[in-house]
């Protein structure tokens, strides 16, 4: 934490002498403490999943939805400051609506990614605003490029992914995604044009279960906290190209699949999926104040 006490980390849009914008880096910290979100790009669509911590027994089960719809064919999930996520989604909806008004067709996912990227980036330029405290995973199917998945970070950069994870459990989730996608990929040649998404053999229906498993696995480091899981999908075959929450039965099936594979894992005492997740809390005291060096 060389940033603290230099004075260069107190305002957004200010560079430090070595060329960093600390306020954006701090925004990333808000994301890293957030609940885990996961997205997978499959052969026939995309799937999103998110962990929902049950902070009180008084919460109504199954409500307090986190996954949102940007346009009827695009879904979005995010980790970090949830109200910031709602702000971003509202912007996405405006962009999608304005695109439709002008071009008379649904906004392509890559075009939306570009516009949202610019919007988030603009929030790193001025000291009158703060950056977005979220990393968003969004995607869907469009007529031009089929299933697409993007992850957008607080600095405004976005990348296309075949599997993306963010939030507290991102490291173990990403490790699992890599294994999963490698297993279901016919030919890993990154130079090959994969716009038809032919190389990934995974179907959304199976990915729903895998996402549940990954979120359960990523939650392992946080075991004492109870949680719910929310999963949505968007696929031409399963949802006629619309982004929807998965049906209740499928969710239940996925959860029991996740619990089952996890209990097998515990039996065999697998310990290789554990990464160090406790970064950035060392210099903070009980009140959340920062110790000055």
């Amino acid at each position: 934490m060389t940033s603290i006490g230099t004075g260069y980390d107190l305002s957004n849009s200010v560079f430090s002498p070595d060329g960093r914008n600390f306020q954006v880096e701090y925004a990333v910290k808000a994301v890293e403490n957030g609940a885990t979100s996961v997205g997978i790009r499959c052969q026939d669509g995309v799937v999103f999943g998110v962990e929902k911590l049950i902070t009180s027994p008084l919460l109504v089960p199954g409500k307090n939805r986190k996954i949102q719809t940007i346009d009827s064919h695009i879904g979005c999930v995010y980790s970090g400051l949830i109200p910031d996520g709602r702000h971003l989604v509202n912007r996405g909806r405006d962009e999608a609506a304005s695109f439709k008004k002008i071009y008379h067709r649904p906004i392509p996912v890559d075009a939306l990614a570009d516009r949202l990227g610019q919007y988030v980036q603009a929030h790193t330029l001025y000291n009158s605003v703060r950056p977005f405290g979220i990393t968003a995973i969004f995607g869907g199917v469009d007529d031009v490029k089929g299933p697409q998945l993007y992850m957008l970070e607080p600095n405004g950069s976005y990348w296309g992914y075949s599997g993306a994870a963010t939030g507290k459990g991102r490291q173990s989730a990403r490790a699992e995604l890599e294994k999963l996608i490698a297993k279901h990929t016919k030919n890993i040649d990154i130079n090959e044009d994969d716009t038809d998404n032919k190389t990934i053999q995974l179907k959304v229906r199976d990915a729903v279960k895998e996402i549940a498993r990954i979120i359960y696995l990523a939650h392992e480091d946080n075991k004492e906290k109870e949680f719910e899981i929310e999963i949505s999908w968007c696929s031409n075959e399963e949802t006629q190209g619309k982004h929807k929450l998965v049906p209740k039965e499928l969710l239940e099936e996925a959860v029991s699949f996740a619990k089952e594979t996890l209990s097998h894992l515990e039996d065999s005492d697998d310990s290789d999926s554990d990464d160090d997740n406790n970064e950035g809390s060392a210099t903070q005291d009980n009140e959340g104040d920062i110790v000055l060096e």
């Binding site: 934490m1 940033s3 603290i4 980390d9 107190l10 305002s11 957004n12 600390f22 306020q23 701090y26 925004a27 990333v28 910290k29 808000a30 994301v31 890293e32 403490n33 970090g80 400051l81 000291n127 009158s128 605003v129 703060r130 950056p131 405290g133 950035g280 809390s281 210099t283 903070q284 005291d285 009140e287 959340g288 104040d289 920062i290 110790v291 000055l292």
Partner: peptide, 24 residues
């Protein structure tokens, strides 16, 4: 000595990603 420089306004994140003005 403790001093919090990150709680002056709503547009400043603390180094741990918190918004003190909102928490206050």
């Amino acid at each position: 000595m403790f001093r919090n420089n990150y709680d002056g306004d709503t547009v400043t994140f603390s180094p741990t990603g918190r918004l003190f003005q909102v928490e206050y």
